[in-house]
């Protein structure tokens, strides 16, 4: 056990959320809930990154009055990574929702197990 569990409360929260999201995406049979789990997992990562960029008592990384001193601003890199992460998350969510909609039209259920049973009953060509 390291020394910083309680100091890093944002990270702690992010890890718990990540675990919950991961498990939901992994084992939840309902497809829509799986996508919700995916989004929880992604949000946990954004929270983690946002906490990584923060430095006590510093400003957002927009240059004010021409002051370009490292002591003035927080770390800009995690913000950029979160931006990329959000865009990727939106894209992935859109694709999975469209897949789910298509599956629902085909099998009239959102339960992964039922869908797989129906698929196996269909036989294959």
């Amino acid at each position: 056990m390291g020394p910083n569990l309680l100091n890093n409360y944002f990270e702690t929260a992010a890890m718990i959320l990540f675990g919950i999201g991961f498990t939901t995406l992994f084992l939840q049979p309902n497809l829509i809930k799986k996508v919700i789990g995916l989004n929880i997992m992604d949000s946990a990562i954004y929270l983690f990154l946002a906490a990584k960029g923060y430095i006590d008592g510093r400003l957002a990384p927009i240059v004010v009055n021409g002051v370009t001193d490292m002591e003035t601003y927080i770390n800009p890199i995690p913000s950029g990574l979160v931006l990329t992460g959000i865009v990727v998350g939106v894209s992935v969510t859109a694709v999975s929702l469209s897949l789910i909609q298509k599956l629902y039209k085909e099998y009239h259920t959102l339960d992964m197990d039922e869908i797989l049973t129906k698929v196996s009953k269909e036989g294959d060509h």
Binding site: G2, L5, N7, N8, F18
Partner: peptide, 14 residues
């Protein structure tokens, strides 16, 4: 993950 997080550098430290 929590054990890993406890090893991470301190939050908000410059």
């Amino acid at each position: 993950l929590l054990i890993t997080a406890s090893f991470l550098p301190e939050y908000g430290n410059p």
